[in-house]
C-alpha cells in the first residue's frame, strides 16, 4: 500500500526570488549556532566515549596505572569466558521473550483502550499504563524483590491463600528469569502502548467502515487492516524495544545480581562487573563493543525485514 508523490507536485510552482548571499550565510550561521549545544553535547558525551571505548578495548587499564597495549587479548579473553558467553545468550533470550511480551501486551491493550473506552477514560488508562515508565527501575525492582520474596512476599502469601505452596521466585533459575521478565515488561510496555495508540489513531475510520461493508471483522480486520496500517509504528516500537532490552541492567542487578548462578546475568552487567568491580576497563570496553555490534546487527536486520513487512500509506 505504497503511495508515491509525483515529482511534478513536489516541485515549486513558481521560481522563488534568489536570496542575497549574506542572508544565506547568516542563516547558515544561525543554524550552526542552534546546533552547537546539541552537537557539542553529543560529541562530548556520546561520540567521544564511544571512540575512547573502542580504543580502550585494545588496552589493559585499571585507572590507577597507565594503560598497557593488549592487542586482541581482551576479545580473546571474553570469547573464552563461559560467564560472558552465558550473559550474551541470556540477553538474547531475554530480548526475544521480553520484547515479544512487551509489544504483544502493548498492542492488545492499545486496541482495547482505543476501541472500547470513551476518550476521557482513554487518557486515564494511557497515563496509568505509562506511569511505571517514569519510576526508577531500581526502586521498582526493590519493591518487586519484596513482593516476590519467597518467605515473606505478598505474592506467595496470595498463592498460599488459594492453596498453592511457596514458589522460590528469586532463588531458582526459572523463577528468577520469570520475575526479571515480568518486572521489565510491566515497566516498559507503557511506552510501546503510547506509540501504538498514536499509530492506531492515524488509521482513517473510512478504511474500517469500508472493511466492515466488505464483511471484515475481528481477527481478519486486525490482520488485514490494523496490522498493515500500523506496521511503520510497529517497526519503530520494535527497534526501540530491542535496543532497550539488549541493554537491560537495573532489574536483574537489583533483583538477583545475575543469579542464581548466571541465570539472569546480562551483557551490560558484565560490562559493569568487569569495569567498575574488577577494574578491567579494557575488558569492559571489549564487551561493550561486542554489545554495540549486536545492537547494530539487530537493528539492521529489523530494517532489512521491514522492507518486506512494513507498509507506508
Amino acid at each position: 500500500m505504497t503511495t508515491t508523490i509525483p515529482a511534478s507536485t513536489a516541485a515549486p510552482t513558481a521560481a522563488a526570488p534568489a536570496e542575497p548571499a549574506h542572508d544565506r550565510r547568516s542563516e547558515r550561521l544561525l543554524v550552526w549556532l542552534f546546533l552547537v549545544p546539541t552537537v557539542g553535547g553529543l560529541a562530548l558525551f556520546t561520540l567521544l566515549p564511544i571512540a575512547a571505548s573502542f580504543v580502550l578495548a585494545f588496552f589493559r587499564w585499571d585507572i590507577i596505572t597507565s594503560p598497557e597495549w593488549a592487542g586482541l587479548h581482551n576479545f580473546g579473553d571474553i570469547a573464552s569466558d563461559v560467564t560472558v558467553r552465558r550473559a550474551f545468550l541470556n540477553t538474547i533470550g531475554f530480548v526475544i521473550v521480553a520484547v515479544a511480551l512487551q509489544l504483544g501486551i502493548a498492542l492488545w491493550l492499545a486496541i482495547l483502550v482505543q476501541s472500547r473506552l470513551p476518550s476521557w477514560l482513554q487518557s486515564v488508562f494511557r497515563s496509568a499504563f505509562f506511569f511505571p515508565l517514569v519510576l526508577s527501575a531500581a526502586s521498582v525492582s526493590l519493591v518487586m524483590a519484596y513482593l516476590f520474596n519467597a518467605d515473606f512476599g505478598l505474592v506467595n502469601s496470595i498463592l498460599n491463600a488459594v492453596g498453592i505452596p511457596d514458589v522460590q521466585w528469586l532463588s531458582t533459575g526459572s523463577g528468577a528469569v520469570a520475575v526479571v521478565i515480568f518486572v521489565y515488561v510491566w515497566q516498559s510496555f507503557g511506552f510501546s502502548l503510547l506509540l501504538f495508540l498514536g499509530g492506531l489513531a492515524s488509521i482513517p475510520t473510512e478504511v474500517y467502515e469500508a472493511a466492515e461493508l466488505d464483511g471484515a471483522k475481528g481477527w481478519s480486520r486486525f490482520t488485514k487492516i490494523t496490522l498493515p496500517l500500523i506496521s511503520p509504528t510497529l517497526l519503530v516500537a520494535t527497534v526501540m524495544a530491542v535496543i532497550a532490552a539488549l541493554q537491560i541492567f537495573d532489574q536483574p542487578w537489583v533483583l538477583t545480581r545475575g543469579g542464581p548462578g548466571d541465570s539472569t546475568r546480562t551483557a551490560v552487567m558484565m560490562i559493569y562487573q568487569s569495569g567498575f568491580q574488577e577494574l578491567q576497563f579494557g575488558r569492559a570496553s571489549a564487551i561493550g563493543l561486542v554489545l554495540t555490534a549486536l545492537i547494530l546487527a539487530a537493528t539492521a536486520a529489523q530494517f532489512r525485514l521491514s522492507r518486506r513487512y512494513v507498509f507506508y500509506q
Partner: peptide
Amino acid sequence: TALIKNVTAAVTG
C-alpha cells in the same frame, strides 16, 4: 560475585 551467585545455586539446587 562468584560466591553470591553460586551460593544461591548450591542451596536451592
